[in-house]
Amino acid sequence: MGILDKTVTTIFVLLGGVALVGVATDLGTVVAPDNDREIHAYETAPRCSTAPQTPAECRWTEEFTASGIHVVPEYKTGDRSAVLIGASGARWNTGFPNSGPILDQLDEGDRVTGTIWRGRLTEITANGAAQETGAAPADGSWPDIVSLVLSSSGLLVVVACAWRLRHRRATPAMDATIVLSIGLLFVGLFSAIALFVLADLLSPSVAYNFWLFAAIFCAGAAWVTVLVRRDLKAPRTPGLPGIPI
């Protein structure tokens, strides 16, 4: 028995597909543009003439002393942070998304130069290297990446369910379309992990590029599509639908 055999179940699956498309639309049309605008504002922000007393649109740099350093290897999850102490004695409890290239080289008392923007310590530099903190503007590509995965899977679900509701019963092709939609979700997850691994090998501007992810995702989607088509065309044992002989 397939998931689309019953009309009620098909309707619930259809609503799930519509929800996926809705979330994808919101990410692609609202979240992604907001991230892009924030990144552009940060990159084009002028240097502050004097130290701002309140959150400002300009960027201010000053020297900090590192203390309370916590770091774990890139392949592990855990606390990556340091307390950065300014000349005035102000303490900035600063988290980092990555261990390097600066955090994992810091010792107690080391000096770094920090960048402050909109009241957030967004970046540190030392010995010619730079590292963003967890307060830096979010990378603009992740909403587009998630949107691509969710919309691809959701649209297939909607098509399969609408197709089923127009007919009296489900067909193997309809069930195969649902399987393909689930496969695309897994391919999207795998592609995101592959991109995360590549981040250790490539420069951030390349590793987090949306088109690199799209290439990996589309290649995986094509492979899943071929597998589903082969299974759909394979001869079936009578009475055992979906099991090729």
Rank of each mutant, 00 (worst) to 15 (best):
106 L>G: 08
63 E>L: 08
199 A>V: 11
240 L>N: 02
242 G>E: 00
30 V>I: 15
95 G>Q: 12
29 T>W: 14
222 A>E: 11
106 L>H: 08
41 A>W: 00
46 P>W: 01
99 S>F: 00
8 V>W: 11
178 I>G: 00
125 T>E: 14
140 G>I: 04
108 E>A: 13
43 E>T: 12
65 T>R: 12
70 H>P: 00
22 G>S: 11
156 L>K: 06
200 D>K: 11
99 S>R: 12
111 R>Q: 14
153 S>T: 08
80 R>Y: 04
17 G>P: 09
88 S>T: 14
106 L>N: 07
232 L>I: 13
116 I>S: 01
169 R>L: 01
234 A>E: 10
178 I>K: 01
84 L>I: 09
49 S>K: 11
164 R>T: 06
109 G>W: 13
86 G>M: 00
134 G>T: 04
32 A>E: 15
77 T>G: 12
123 E>P: 07
182 I>F: 13
2 G>V: 13
207 A>N: 07
178 I>R: 03
15 L>P: 06
153 S>P: 05
14 L>F: 15
137 P>W: 02
244 P>S: 02
191 S>Q: 11
98 N>C: 02
238 P>F: 03
18 V>W: 06
9 T>Y: 12
204 P>K: 06
33 P>V: 12
184 L>Y: 14
220 G>I: 15
5 D>M: 00
103 L>G: 04
204 P>H: 09
244 P>G: 09
159 V>R: 10
106 L>R: 08
71 V>M: 10
185 L>C: 10
97 P>G: 04
128 G>M: 07
154 G>C: 08
174 M>N: 00
220 G>A: 13
212 L>G: 13
136 A>M: 03
222 A>D: 10
204 P>W: 10
45 A>R: 06
28 G>F: 09
218 C>K: 08
109 G>I: 14
52 P>S: 03
230 R>Y: 06
185 L>H: 09
118 R>S: 03
81 S>T: 09
39 I>T: 04
243 I>E: 00
245 I>M: 00
86 G>Q: 03
239 G>H: 02
96 F>Q: 03
102 I>P: 00
13 V>Q: 09
27 L>T: 05
26 D>Y: 15
76 K>T: 13
25 T>D: 04
121 L>K: 02
4 L>P: 05
73 P>V: 09
94 T>H: 03
59 R>M: 05
236 R>N: 01
231 D>H: 14
176 A>R: 01
26 D>Q: 08
230 R>G: 11
64 F>S: 04
196 F>N: 12
231 D>K: 13
213 F>A: 11
233 K>S: 14
227 L>S: 07
152 S>N: 10
25 T>Q: 05
104 D>I: 03
220 G>T: 12
89 G>R: 02
239 G>M: 04
146 V>C: 05
77 T>A: 11
214 A>V: 15
49 S>R: 10
119 G>A: 04
165 L>T: 08
183 G>F: 01
232 L>R: 06
